[in-house]
Nucleic acid binder design. Sequence first.
RNA 1: GCGGACGUGGUGGAAUUGGUAUACACAGCAGACUUAAAAUCUGCCGCCGAUAAGGCAUACGGGUUCAAGUCCCGUCGUCCGCACCA
Length: 898
Amino acid sequence: MTGAAISGDSPRKAILFERTRKSGTAKSMATERYNAREAEARWQKVWDENQVFVTRNDDPQPKYYVLEMFPYPSGRIHMGHVRNYTMGDVVARYKRARGFNVLHPMGWDAFGMPAENAAMQNKVHPKDWTYENIATMRGQLKIMGLSLDWSREFATCDPEYYAQQQRLFLDFLEAGLVDRRKSKVNWDPVDMTVLANEQVIDGRGWRSGAVVEQRELTQWFLRITDYAEELLEAIDTLDRWPDKVRLMQRNWIGRSEGLRVTFEFVTPAPSGETTLEIFTTRPDTLYGASFMGLSPDHPISQALAEKDPELAAFIEECHHLGTSEEAIEKAEKRGFDTGLKVKHPLDETVELPVYVANFILMGYGTGAIFACPAHDQRDLDFARKYGLPVKPVVLPKDADPATFEIGDEAYTGDGTIFNSDFMDGMSVPDAKEAIAKRLESQTVGNNPQGVREINFRLRDWGISRQRYWGCPIPVIHCETCGTLPVPKDSLPVKLPDDINFDKPGNPLDRHPTWKHVACPKCGKDATRETDTMDTFVDSSWYFARFTDPRNSEPTDKEAADAWLPVDQYIGGIEHAILHLLYSRFFARAMKKTGHLGVTEPFKGLFTQGMVTHETYKGADGAWISPAEVRLEERDGKRHAVLEIDGSAVTIGPIEKMSKSKKNTVDPTDIIETYGADTARWFMLSDSPPERDVEWTEDGVQGAWRFVQRVWRMTGEIAEKMPVAITKLADFGDTAMEIRRATHKTLKAVSDDIEKLAFNRAVARLYELVNTLTKAQQRQDVPVDMAYAIREGAEYLVRMMAPMTPHLAESCWEALGGEGLLSTSGWPEVDESLLVEDTITLPVQVNGKKRADVTVSREASKEEIEAATLSLDAVSRLLDGKPPRKVIVVPARIVNVVI
RNA sequence: GCGGACGUGGUGGAAUUGGUAUACACAGCAGACUUAAAAUCUGCCGCCGAUAAGGCAUACGGGUUCAAGUCCCGUCGUCCGCACCA
């Protein structure tokens, strides 16, 4: 490494240059600085040459599959990747040391829009852009020293991968898991493309600025709703998933039990209907019904709008409302009185007006409701606005039926039914049952008026994307024979390379030849499906592909069943719902089609927090990156100035690292400056892994100092206690204490890693280093202590190996350890060292700690009590009187109550 | 609006799940070494109090318990998710 390369732009690098240069002049190994750059490259080469991390499927040891969510090849890795992959690597290395055959693969989630955006902006082919990014990022991951089996690497845009995905699609099609139907999309008329919700900003396309239209397109769907019940129930079995994620999935699937009720129109609707079907989860409140609500997209609303321009205008307005729940809940509830009326199913004399209302979704239930304002907030808001009656029918406990009234808040709690004829006095669940029975026995026409129904909010998964850079849907459209699957022996349907993005629209659709193909059935001219698949499809089965990535079938079922489920999956919380739910669905679909034997893909799930950083703004309000800022401390306050001219910089809030706020730190810079182990160590320190971690320069330097400290201490121990000393029969108290500290640390660190509590493991390792440093600094070290210190150092290094693998190998080498640490086992705890002859218990008097009492390990409660009462501090407070009570919690605490 | 999570020193956090609150680290202060700085090492570091004794402290107010950061009720605040879920 030359000076020019490291003395570059930042002062931090200049400091390192100093450090590096000094290390060359140091004399003994004990004072020489650890040269991370040299050591890390060296160990990575050794691991690579010895194929240490290549996993064999026929290895007889018990399996352990650890997987981190694979990255999108955006161009460069970011700190979030560093955190994610460090955690996974710790688990992988730890489990390997514990004797497991570990599968720890890496690949690329390589299809998707950014490649097409780059193609449009920079005239670069999506394929070239993607594979170049992959090459860059692979190099970046490699310098992190991850114990990955690179021989299993693939990208989802490899034809070998998406060919198998097309096979899966065809198998799903045969198995009845695929549908083709019309669905609404956001259409950008200028870019001639479908927009994702996030690409629609204020009703306009993000790129073109054109007003977005709602368009109906025929799209492909995977029938995930077939599995709604099962996906919901099986959440209970995922006991190694965070509760938060399980709850989010439950809410997303959204099962609700209710009643479908048929209401009769007083006079038929203009479109001819004589009845209106609604779905309700609160049939118990039917006597509180005040009006009916129709979705603007309901067929009756649409039919009425054709003859009523005012209603048409209202519906049009509803379509401009945002579609997010949050936006609409906060929006004003509005409606349009159709003039139609329906009869109350339980009292023919009551007629209810029918409104088209902006808060009713066509996609849920029947797209129509009955409204009970007293017990639903939205209905209440609506009723108050349009002056509709509010009649309470559920009486809260202890409320007086004569005076109970609804104000501005609907009552949605439990209670007793009243004002409800035959249901009066019933509980809410009993009333639901009673009314279901009643309406089931009543008929409208020849059908029961009420039918019990279970509804899900989960919708089928639309996978059609009108884009180039995705997996082609292997289907052919023939005018004569209809829609046909591509014969399996002619797979894959490969993406053509000769495309351009000069014109708007899907390049596949306007390609001169690609879509033209002979019908596989009749042989006449036909066309290929030009839609490609949602990229969530790609990531819904990659974990299975890793188990045998070069197989000519989607999976080798035996290999997949042996490896799956993934024992520990680690990734961001942002995938809590879609990716994880789709993958769970895919596992079931693959099981049905014979590609897998397991139903749940991920046994253990861990969602890590984000990496955050302070934000900085210059005088002109523009964001400034941390690399351009120098931090100073004046008058006890932190100040920031611009590096180049010293001008003042405002320190802003700590936020998730993002390009838009420029508060990112490049992992490659950090690794070049401090080494991968320092970056890894810092990522594991301090913050619990599920929480956000703030990246700070001080923190990194602290980690760097620790790396140096461990190196220095190990070197000194290696020098002073060079040879392995034969184990002694007897140890003095001091040596015993060191040994106890070592073995206690080992036990604790093992437990912590098992629980992914890396920050706690780090704290324990700090403690052990503190203990060992103090011990080895003594002038003359007796032989029993020398043994204890060496043992401590060796154990320390081996415990650190999963976290800082290069440093650990270097220290192991310095200590004269045999072989590679990366292939060594985990050290053994000497349990006998964990039990001590005497224990010291805290003594409380009336719940406040006043003293300690030291007793023998076998002491009985009575003995402990006696020892406690004879303590000066206790007897003084007792003042000769007997205690009211003495509570002895074995191995915990003594509490004397006076 | 609905649903969820969280609240501990100047800062990140720990607390064996009801049993010594503040481990460990960062920052800060003082000292040693040095011509000096960096690095390194030693000590201090929740608040009040005098350096003591002692008291008070886990957002706030109650409660349960021999014992509460941990459990229960209420209040306040922060963060996250959301597809109008009838």
